[in-house]
């Protein structure tokens, strides 16, 4: 739970947008779409445990 995850997401974002630009200009439109989808899913994999942990803490803390 620290700040460098933000910059990791930013790095994935930049990388994906560069790759999809390259793929788009070299005529492989569907590969570009797949790359951006993969980047999105990777970032979601990083974020979802933190969100789950947050909701678990709130549930435990406020006895919801």
């Amino acid at each position: 739970m620290d700040v460098n995850l933000i910059f990791r997401i930013a790095a994935v974002g930049i990388l994906v947008s560069v790759i999809s630009q390259i793929l788009k200009h070299s005529g492989r439109e569907e590969h570009a779409f797949l790359t951006s989808l993969a980047g999105l899913i990777l970032v979601l994999f990083w974020i979802v445990p933190y969100i789950y942990e947050l909701f678990e803490t709130i549930k435990k803390l406020f006895s919801l």
């Binding site: 739970m1 995850l5 974002g13 994906v16 947008s17 970032v43 933190y50 947050l54 803490t57 803390l61």
Partner: peptide
């Protein structure tokens, strides 16, 4: 920065930011 390049990443970073700050105060 990602607003016009790739908008879904800007939303994801915003999401994680609020979760991070929220988590630090809940503790």
């Amino acid at each position: 920065f990602f607003k016009n390049v790739k908008s879904e990443y800007s939303m994801l970073i915003g999401l994680f930011l609020s979760v991070l700050i929220f988590f630090s105060i809940i503790i």
